[in-house]
Design a binder for these strands. Structure first.
Lengths: 112, 112
DNA sequence: TGATATACATCGTATAACGAGGTATATAAT
DNA sequence: ATTATATACCTCGTTATACGATGTATATCA
């Protein structure tokens, strides 16, 4: 542990990417924008987080891709697989468990 | 990213340890119990998380220690420093920001 | 011509949770 | 006496992961 606030973001990209793709198929750049929008400008992650995360998700068969060229630009659309859907359910539950626990501890003390 | 649910726990030990020690001075073993209690058995972390986290926090001067022997057993009491208190405020705000953002995204989609 | 937006990508660094394993004392049960 | 459990500390190795910096290329607008 070394005190970068970054730590609390761990796992969040995976959760949000799966969640957004559960609504509809999107491509990388679009996902980056949707993270900002859906989180009301509270969260955002750069391309060095976004693309490795998407590649990892794809490699684990939680997402599958479909390439398309629009206006001379290549877009790689990501789609949630059945496995990805299962994972989303699991990860969401895990998030809720942790968030509940953390809130319980915070509420108990000062700074409540 | 490789799909262990563990990722979402990142940063949580630091936050909870600082939070618990803001209430009162405690030693390691006691802290482990208090994490379970204060989180209503929702969260727990083992000694391989607890002790390295405490050592890191101490090294960063967010905690300071005071050794005491009770009933033939050595206990190392951890106390929040001023710097630790500042850090707690900061980390708590960071947690709330992220939690708010994640909830906003989750609420927008299915699994709402 | 230059700036900005779109659209993809990787490398390196720093860091961090956790299982497994280790040492040692006090106390309660068999 | 012996065994088991609780208390109390610790570290090593594995695995993972967010992020800044950096790179490539096209479309559009000033």
């Amino acid at each position: 542990m070394a005190g970068s606030d970054r730590a609390l973001m761990a796992g969040v990209p995976e959760l949000l990417l799966l969640q957004l793709l559960a609504r509809r198929t999107m491509y990388g750049y679009e996902l980056a924008q949707q993270v900002r929008l859906a989180s009301r400008d509270t969260l955002a992650f750069g391309e060095s987080v976004l693309y490795p995360a998407l590649h990892s998700l794809e490699q684990r068969r939680l997402l599958q891709t479909r390439e398309r060229t629009v206006d001379g630009r290549v877009r790689i659309y990501y789609e949630l697989t059945a496995k990805g859907s299962t994972r989303l359910t699991q990860l969401t539950a895990e998030w809720r468990r942790i968030a509940t626990g953390v809130e319980a501890v915070l509420a108990a003390g000062p700074h409540g």
